[in-house]
Design a protein around this nucleic acid. Sequence first.
DNA 1: GACAATAATTTCGATATCGAATATTTCTAC
DNA 2: GTAGAAATATTCGATATCGAAATTATTGTC
Lengths: 153, 153
Amino acid sequence: MGTKYRGPAAETRALNAFIKLMRAANSVSGALARPVADEGGLTMSQFGVLEALLHLGPMSQGQLCGKLLLSGSNLTTVIDNLEKHGLVRRERLSSDRRVVEVSLTDKGRSLIARMFPNHARRITNLFAALTPKQQDQLAALCRTLGTSITEPV
Amino acid sequence: MGTKYRGPAAETRALNAFIKLMRAANSVSGALARPVADEGGLTMSQFGVLEALLHLGPMSQGQLCGKLLLSGSNLTTVIDNLEKHGLVRRERLSSDRRVVEVSLTDKGRSLIARMFPNHARRITNLFAALTPKQQDQLAALCRTLGTSITEPV
DNA sequence: GACAATAATTTCGATATCGAATATTTCTAC
DNA sequence: GTAGAAATATTCGATATCGAAATTATTGTC
């Protein structure tokens, strides 16, 4: 799939969709990053880790990589910083000592539990620029696009 | 705008659209970053700067900030690195010496001119997961969402 | 024409992000 | 049961990214 010639019109269309997608994602994440930093002193990646731990429970770093689409080395850094601030805890699993399980501390749990509702409300407000139907359409299109990407292009 | 209560259903829907949008953007940019690094040793930000200069001509850093949605301090770093590799040139404008105009060197021009067609083809291939109509829909939805974001949430 | 306000860029310090190389531990063949 | 392969996480070096503060240049006011 994906090697046949599609012509300049197809290219123009795809490039336009691409730039719009990137700008929207950029705008949304920018708008969310500021209050997350102000309210809790967190970056979006740190917030993402805490949120995953809150909603899904303790997890290995490998599992977190999958949830958050980050590289392993990146996650090590993010968790280092969360640990430094006393928000998460690392523990080697005794059943498999290769694995480090990450879990929330009380401080981390109360922080993310306090922040998440505001975050969700802000997302809801941002997406209110689209009708409910449009939001579902956007989600479906992004899902199709995202899941189609597995191999190098 | 944006403060009235919308209920948990609206929240679920918006959160779903949000996560799909982020993952799609993440997947697309990840898929494109690899070949750009392999073919030309460039990061996506460096590529973005060169592309803007190729298609729009020499520009001040402030103008580049607007085009690329990056902070000024970030752009300084990116251009430092491009300059280090001899791909762009900085020149103080004599008409207004606060402004630094950035332009492509011959080396930078030939690199980006060589790389861009492949990049465009890869984007076209990625977006071929969507029909032309769907690509336009996605672009329109992202545009609506993106342009609605101006103020803090 | 000096002085304050404004504008463009840079510097600084912190964190994110990647890929490659490196442990460390576990699993698999034999 | 031991050697090699696979899995998990970390380290390392480079670049990106932001916001705040500092720097340099211009403009507007009196």
